[in-house]
Design a protein around this nucleic acid. Structure first.
Ligand SMILES: [Mn+2]
Ligand SMILES: [Mn+2]
Ligand SMILES: [Zn+2]
Ligand SMILES: [Zn+2]
Lengths: 146, 146
DNA sequence: CCACACTCTTAGACTAAATCTAAAGTTGGA
DNA sequence: TCCAACTTTAGATTTAGTCTAAGAGTGTGG
């Protein structure tokens, strides 16, 4: 594990610091699209001195270097993902869960045509709907009348 | 214009109020993916009494009813879009501009396979990269050393 | 080994985004 | 007309994220 991260840092040229390591390690270990706050709370438990600003700094640096990918969520805190294998996301309307979907290819030709003269760095695909748990009524209808 | 909105409200069954009308009208007139705050400032100019909470309420109701679609932006305020014809989005890494892209179809089969048992309501596709203005160096490199 | 520039971390203040609250206003139907 | 449900309002509150200024760590050249 330690070595895997070592290599990741080396590969991207991003300077490794204990804080950045811990943030990345948390994301790699807990593949669940955590928010900056969640990461702060977790990592701060083992390192009392670690500050919120450092978590944001580290996340920015990691995103910048490509080791982490941000997942924007409408009206809520951004989430972060250290799973490098390419994949898509599914967000449940009801419970907000973010689930990984297997990668599927895109109509590259049509896409480039639509993009016109723009330089495309990345394509983000998010499906929205109802997750299986919610479909089975396993989740309380969102914090309402509850 | 007035009638178009009338019909839109009627069609979706969403109760029309002057405030909701004004919010929707602004979005229809200014096709530029405004934030709640921008809408508030604009609409509040002509109706002093309109409050921020109402803008958020109205936007939620409109999104709920399908007349408006939200556009999540990583690390920034959500934006809203009343252009109903389906289309995709392009977000510029450098200047943050959100541009509309012509619609292009998706590999439905592969997508459903990836979604498995989940009920998909909507698919959101966002391309990221550098817009044409930025590519031509027409924009100042984002608020840095500036 | 030291000096110095550079990078990074820290605590906490600050700004911005969004939600909540409780009271007042509006609406449509009985 | 009356009522219950719905909507709006101002402002407080919560939450997300940025900024700042001081200090700590790192690496290179002397
Ligand atoms: Mn993921
Ligand atoms: Mn659009
Ligand atoms: Zn769900
Ligand atoms: Zn741009």
């Amino acid at each position: 594990m330690k070595e895997r991260l070592q290599k990741a840092f080396a590969r991207t040229g991003l300077r490794q610091t204990p804080q950045r390591h811990d943030v990345l390690a948390w994301l790699v270990r807990h593949k669940r699209h955590s928010t900056a706050e969640e990461i702060f709370e977790a990592v701060n438990r083992s390192n009392q001195r670690l500050s919120r600003a450092t978590v944001y700094n580290a996340l920015h640096a990691l995103v910048e270097s490509g080791l982490v990918r941000p997942v924007a969520v409408e009206g809520a805190a951004s989430r972060f993902d250290a799973t490098l294998d390419r994949h898509h996301h599914f967000i449940c309307d009801r419970c907000g869960a973010i689930e990984d979907l297997a990668w599927f290819g895109l109509p590259v030709k049509a896409m480039q045509a639509a993009a016109g003269g723009r330089a495309v760095r990345d394509v983000e695909i998010t499906l929205h709907g109802t997750c299986e748990r919610c479909a089975r009524g396993k989740t309380k209808p969102p914090p309402k009348t509850e």
